[in-house]
Nucleic acid binder design. Structure first.
Lengths: 219, 219
DNA sequence: ATTTATTTTTAGACTTATCTAAATTATTTT
DNA sequence: AAAATAATTTAGATAAGTCTAAAAATAAAT
């Protein structure tokens, strides 16, 4: 099945919205994600339903079919592998890779992404810490320990982030917090749930809004 | 100026046709290169003329303006750098890279291609031996010595090929003739202008049709 | 349980890039 | 130089993806 970039983007959007919302995805939600009007979304999901990529009943929202889900995961796989390439090989920063990967994920080839994966030595996670689906579409989701729930005095390793927005990525860059870094929680402030954390560049105060968006592995 | 992939492809086609034909490029030639109908070409070149990318007078064919030429060279640069990446880093063969590079050359980014170039350590030629334009659009064309004109008994190095068609590339793969290989002309057959050539895999007979499509540097 | 508000869908229009068929211009041939 | 052939352009249509505005359906509020 040969899909257009646009169709692929719709599937990808529905995939991540479904993951975040669990039930059927609404027209409006998709239109916001894809920055288009609701009426355009209706047109497109009817077309996708026609191709058996989504389940759709009028006014009831959509969900991905098995095939639709498979394709969406393939795109996610491509996106994340390209992100690794851009960061590890081309010296891009954490916050710069997303936009480019949005383009590269649509390159059509039977072999390219597997060769890229081998070249990158089979990374398991992308620069944001999100897992990279394997060739068969299997995904290993990491456990949901957030920095905010690490106990005082304990150390942990940064394995991912929840919020991938530009401002957040830029903020982490400034704090020099990167994947793999070890962080030690020195103290917590009950008043606002901020914490004092020892990082590679010294001790810094981190607000709860930040700490609850950083995935960590306890040591 | 933000161009569509299609517009970029037209500029690229006009560029290489102009290089091969020297005078104005005709509608039909473009239509053959781009696999479309002549009437579609007329529409598009009018649009490109509107944007000052080509010089166009009805019934007189087109040529690139300075801006048009600059953009075309940028695309050629991208195409050839991606080809080097695919061949050197991802283990593709000579004859497989073109189609993929056709897609990758249209990725939009201010920084990507320069970072890629640095990562590839500033290659000067692509896998077909064609020169890679630098950031400013300067191209060094190699001298036009063909294997067919190498004297009997002399050796040379393969530095490029003229015909980049799929059958020819596959044929060279079979003969294990690659860029950088040294070839020695053992004898020439006046009857059909074929030559006996010593290669890495032994002595082989090469027809004139082949030998006049291989660029070499005399030793 | 109506009314009100919100969401979703339909209808019709626009743009890009393509096509076919017909008309026009240029080039060859005789 | 006129007739025949070939190339080019115009006109009108089509498909993909989007839009606005209006209609229909669902959800929320009183």
């Amino acid at each position: 099945m040969m899909l257009s970039q646009t169709e692929e983007n719709y599937l990808k959007a529905i995939y991540s919205l479904a993951y975040a919302n669990s039930n059927n995805v609404s027209t409006t939600l998709i239109s916001e994600a894809i920055k288009t009007k609701a009426s355009s979304v209706t047109d497109m999901i009817q077309k996708l339903a026609e191709k058996d990529l989504v389940h759709y009943k009028k006014y009831q929202g959509v969900s991905l079919t098995e095939i639709g889900q498979k394709i969406a995961v393939e795109i996610v796989r491509k996106h994340r592998l390209w992100e690794v390439f851009l960061l590890n090989k081309l010296d891009y920063n954490w916050d710069e890779v997303h936009e480019l990967a949005e383009q590269l994920e649509h390159i059509k080839s039977e072999t390219l992404i597997d060769k890229l994966e081998a070249f990158l030595e089979f990374p398991t996670h992308d620069p944001h810490g999100d897992p990279i689906p394997d060739k068969e579409g299997n995904i290993k989701h990491h456990n949901d320990t957030m920095l905010s729930s690490v106990e005082t005095g304990k150390s942990c390793i940064v394995i991912g982030i929840k919020d991938s927005s530009d401002p957040f990525l830029k903020f982490l860059d400034k704090l020099q917090i990167q994947l793999g870094n070890t962080l030690k929680v020195i103290s917590k402030e009950p008043f606002d749930n901020s914490m004092l954390v020892e990082t590679t560049i010294g001790s810094i105060s981190i607000s709860n809004q930040i700490s609850k968006n950083i995935f960590v592995k306890n040591l």
